[in-house]
Design a protein around this nucleic acid. Structure first.
Lengths: 263, 263
DNA sequence: CAAACCGTGACGTAGCGTGAATGTTC
DNA sequence: TGAACATTCACGCTACGTCACGGTTT
């Protein structure tokens, strides 16, 4: 029953380990060994006549690799692929994994910072009302997005933004958000109705978007340039950064822009 | 079928949102809303005659809280408790959560550091052989344990340890590990045979442990003291720090020590 | 012979994703 | 009336933990 026995040639004098012994030796649980066996990640190189698992030196080496890769945050499936198929993709996998972990750590950083601030309030003996509670989280993540976006703006643009921020109230923000939402909805409707971006109606939508953008840039070309760079580099956005509209809407805007410049 | 309807008094003029609308508004998926509903975390405050969910302002506020707490890394169950039972335990939960996240981040730091080193090798155009691969992980985590343990030693002790480390080869380490393993096994056997720690056999075991410890401290009292502090503070050990022996074995050693001093 | 160890199921966990089959709203 | 949206099952996924039941080793 179960999987076929896969004994390999036993070298004379090789030391064999029983499951629990092997487990203790390597710091994993017996259950984990069972799991690795069934999933094909690590099958013991021997079995007794009655079916008990026997692990040898080669198994030891393999398990070391598994544990190492687990430590680096790879999933069991990935580990299997990495260990079974060889070499080349490993480099890529590592770089990818590194990016992933750095991102995760970043998320943790944000949460930790927020929690620390909340704890500060608590330590001051105050009750944590939900207002400030949520505000802290909002501030932390917003602040972070700002910091992150900085890299796309020239120092000149950064100064200008700081200047404009002074008149940027939450109410204003809310209103702008709504206007964007309304515009996007209109554009989606237009797309579903196959409206030509070059048509009058398409151009009107384009104009509205330009006005909204202008509301942020304040007509400052340095800010506009930074904003463009930021948009162009979507591939490198952090994962908690969601793009404001779909690719279709984006394409519509570009087409409208192109048509308007052609005239 | 399913859960009972839980309509509440509808204030005139209140705006109602359908599931997908509400989902988009708050950045969660419709499926998540279903999930929160079934689990009782957030039940829509209304339903249409035909059973479609209707979310109102109060639901909005609650979902904000849920999202906020999720961001801080709480589980849905925890969130439910926090939001349903009120205030007091919140402070404790926050502090606990903070510790947890800091620990997690620390683990990530280790993995990231190891990956960065590996990537360094790869970037240098070298093939990553498993030797160095595993070595890197080992070095990183070991180094980290050392750094962490530093806080328990006086500067004097630290210097002494650095000195002793020069003769601390991997082979020596392996041998000491084995001796500890053998000793612990013997002690466990003794415990199972109800051996009195004060007896000759108990004392012999105590002596063996003292000799092994002395092998690390080198007879330096400053090191011994730091080691004691470190052991005494098990409550604050990081999670990847596993105690070398069980509480029973530990108690046996203490009893043997006490008996030897009494004489 | 008893204690300790081994094996194979099989269910549980967290937080939804992803259909499937079917009714509702616009 | 058709498209979009809604509902309720119900299985899938990660990496094992945790019994349960029955054979094996010492």
């Amino acid at each position: 029953m179960g999987s076929a026995m896969n004994n390999t040639v036993k070298r004379a004098g090789e030391r064999w380990y029983r499951a629990s012994e092997f487990a203790q030796l390597t710091g994993v649980t017996v259950r984990a060994l069972h799991h690795y066996d069934r999933s094909g990640l690590l099958k013991p190189s021997g079995r007794t006549a009655s079916g008990h698992r026997l692990y040898g030196e080669r198994d030891f080496a393999r398990l070391q690799q598994v544990v190492t890769l687990k430590f680096l945050g790879f999933s069991l499936n990935q580990i299997k692929e990495i260990l079974d198929r060889s070499g080349f993709e490993l480099a890529e996998a590592i770089r990818f994994q590194l990016k992933l972990l750095v991102e995760k750590r970043h998320q943790l950083d944000l949460a930790v910072e927020a929690l620390e601030r909340v704890e500060g309030i608590l330590s001051a003996g105050k009750e944590p009302d939900w207002e400030s509670f949520a505000k802290i989280v909002e501030v932390v993540s917003m602040q972070n997005k700002m910091e992150w976006a900085q890299q796309y703006y020239s120092s000149e643009a950064r100064e200008a933004i700081a200047e404009r921020m002074k008149i940027w109230t939450p109410e204003l923000q809310a209103e702008v958000d709504q206007q964007w939402a309304a515009l996007i909805k209109d554009v989606e409707t237009a797309i579903s109705e196959s409206v030509d971006p070059a048509s009058a109606r398409g151009q009107a939508l384009g104009t509205r978007s330009r006005e909204l953008v202008a509301g942020f840039t304040g007509g400052n070309p340095a800010i506009a340039e930074g904003l463009n760079k930021l948009y162009a580099d979507q591939a490198n956005w952090p994962s908690d950064f969601k793009k404001p509209y779909s690719d279709e809407v984006s394409a519509f805007f570009r087409a409208a822009m192109a048509a308007s410049q052609k005239q």
